[in-house]
Nucleic acid binder design. Structure first.
Lengths: 187, 187
DNA sequence: TAATTTATAGAACAGCTGTATAATATTTAG
DNA sequence: CTAAATATTATACAGCTGTTCTATAAATTA
């Protein structure tokens, strides 16, 4: 029981229409009606597959998340045991990933976007931290690892939020340097 | 030129109607029409003052932010020079503040809420960190203080996000302990 | 290929949105 | 207290939303 060809065709049409419309206006200003007109898909059909435009956007989102996962794994391909103090800024690729998909993240971090996307991003980065810790080192076992990952992941997201507020003006390399300095800071 | 009495009356009516409606359904399900019917205010009048329901909600929001500011300042009333390693978990009050306004924050952190509120919270906490640093200690001056504050503020928000995902089950004191442990962790 | 399943189109409906205008009521300022 | 300023109401309108229904087209399966 494979995916129905009709469904694929419909979804592709909607995807493409969305990306086209996104070139001219932000996500929150695109109506379902407009999208369907553009895609030549009946509005009822849209509702058959999705609930809101955001759900459609999510497909695109997940694709980019895959790229993020790859980017983040990067440092571990070079160094076996990771000590932050010797971590080369260049080996962290998260900020470069963001820079690469700048127009996309501009949307994700815009004020009107629902928290959903932020949470997806959060979960993605959190998982990477959790995985990292399992592989590379142990911490004080009275520390709850769920909260620890959340702390770390969102700290980085904090820098990214700030970066987006600065309209991504600084180069990714600058963010990297700052991150390494902050992590190595004695408290 | 004081605030027009009519305006005050209208805004109060809308505020009250909103809080009433919020008892039965989440913010995103409350329509402007419904709100105005409840408040006995003309829909046009609503648009005269606000753009969306969220703008109305923001008044309420700012009130709670004031409480947060007070809570956070708390530790500095006891200790003059703050060293995290000796910071008593009990002296940090942020988590208690969240716990106190649990129903409110449940809304703020729900998936459909726009990022706006998150950003307001973020700015609030960030400012407190910035102020703290100005008063209490200096850091490596090659570290950009804007990004450093963002890192720290959002790290705490990360724990709060996780907490909200756990439906605020753990007591605030647990979050406090975890935070102190994490901060004092040698990297 | 034929029968069955399932996606899509088209149309209709009540309710919401955002905007605009004119008439009216309330408030403020002189 | 009066005149000017301004907030509120009532009404209307085009367009969007979410849902439901029937007929039709397309794909899967046996």
């Amino acid at each position: 029981m494979k995916t129905d060809l009709r469904v694929m065709k419909t979804k592709e049409a909607l995807q493409e229409a969305l990306l086209t419309l996104l070139k001219n206006k932000p996500l929150e200003l695109i109506s379902i009606s407009e999208l369907c007109r553009k895609a030549k898909v009946n509005r009822g059909t849209f509702y058959f597959h999705y609930g809101q435009i955001e759900d459609l956007y999510e497909d695109y989102f997940r694709e980019i998340m895959r790229d993020l996962a790859n980017c983040y794994q990067e440092p571990y391909r070079h160094v076996v045991k990771l000590k932050t103090s010797e971590l080369d800024p260049k080996t962290i690729k998260v900020f470069h990933h963001i820079e690469k998909y700048k127009p996309f993240y501009r949307i994700v971090f815009s004020k009107n976007m629902p928290l959903t996307y932020y949470y997806l991003l959060f979960e993605e980065i959190k998982n990477l931290f959790t995985k990292d810790r399992e592989v590379n080192y142990q911490v004080d076992n009275t520390i709850n690892s769920e909260y620890f990952s959340s702390y770390q992941a969102n700290a980085i997201l904090g820098m990214i939020i700030q970066w987006s507020m600065n309209d991504f003006k600084q180069p990714a390399s600058f963010l990297n340097e700052q991150l390494v300095k902050i992590i190595n800071l004695e408290v």
